Computed example of a mutant assay.
Amino acid sequence: MTKSKIRNIIRGLALIAFAVCLLLSRSNYFTEFPMVKMAVCIIMVVVFVEQLIERSFLGMSIPLGVMTCLFQSELGLGDIHFAIIMLAFVLIGAGLSMIFGKKSHHINIVRDGDSHTIDVSGKAEYWEDEGNFDLDNSLGSRTQYIKINDMKKGSIDNALGQLTVYFNGTTVDPNGAVLDIDNGMGSLSVYFPKEFRVSFNCDNGMGKINMHGECSQDMSQPLIKANVDNGMGTIDFYFE
């Protein structure tokens, strides 16, 4: 089972638990329990665990801040404005990132005269080699320009952030390519050259997938098979 599939299962179970808590909040049998708060906490716990795996202190601080705001009174913080609480947790996360955050390490690989820079700091955000690439964005805003000769296989994974990807300057392997795209609850924009011929196999949950423009219909062009998995986010595909 792939990492993205496991992640989608966890998110799916969290959404089901969220829905159950919302239903129970309208029931007469659980009036003493803050079911809506518990529902939001379930989602925040999932976000926290994902950011813990990513080793993002700032990402972990945000769901902790949200949960603290939900239980202000119980924690004795009822007199503090929620904006102050969130700012405090963001500053704590930023401070921990500065203290314990690891600097990115890069290795430079030269093969057949082409130089590839690969990020090897724990988990690479972007990696490419010999027509393959892997792009992973968990939280925050990011723009990535992909320029690969004879692209064979690629993976784009956007969890909760805002990601924009440009394929200008990329060429496709004559035998075609496979592109796996996974968008959780974030916003993803992908810009293809209009000369690209792309077929889409989309699995859309509660989100939205938008197409802007049309791909090439020239059958002599190599085909890109795009496998798209969208959860609750928004994906926009552009052909320009």
Rank of each mutant, 00 (worst) to 15 (best):
R11C: 05
D236I: 05
D129C: 03
E32Q: 05
E130G: 04
K103R: 13
A124N: 14
V190K: 01
K194R: 15
N132C: 14
F237V: 05
T31N: 09
A226G: 11
G207S: 01
I181V: 14
I9Q: 09
N132H: 15
G93Q: 08
A94G: 14
V46G: 04
T234G: 13
A159K: 09
S97N: 13
M232C: 07
R111A: 03
G113T: 06
R11W: 08
I118M: 12
K5D: 13
R55T: 08
N201Q: 06
S216H: 05
D119S: 07
K103L: 10
R111K: 12
P222G: 11
S199Y: 07
I209C: 03
Q51T: 01
G59M: 04
M35F: 12
A39W: 07
G95V: 11
F82N: 07
A88S: 14
N8C: 04
V66P: 01
D136S: 05
K37Y: 11
C215M: 15
D218W: 02
A226S: 10
F100A: 09
F30R: 13
E130I: 05
G12Q: 13
R7H: 07
N230Y: 12
I209L: 08
F30L: 15
R7N: 13
L13A: 11
M151E: 05
E54N: 14
I62L: 11
Y238L: 01
F192T: 00
P222N: 15
A88L: 11
Y29Q: 02
I209H: 03
S187G: 05
K5H: 04
K37T: 09
I109K: 07
N158Q: 06
N168H: 12
G207D: 03
G154V: 04
N204M: 09
L70P: 01
D150K: 15
H212N: 15
S97M: 13
D112W: 09
S189W: 01
F196S: 02
K194A: 10
H105A: 06
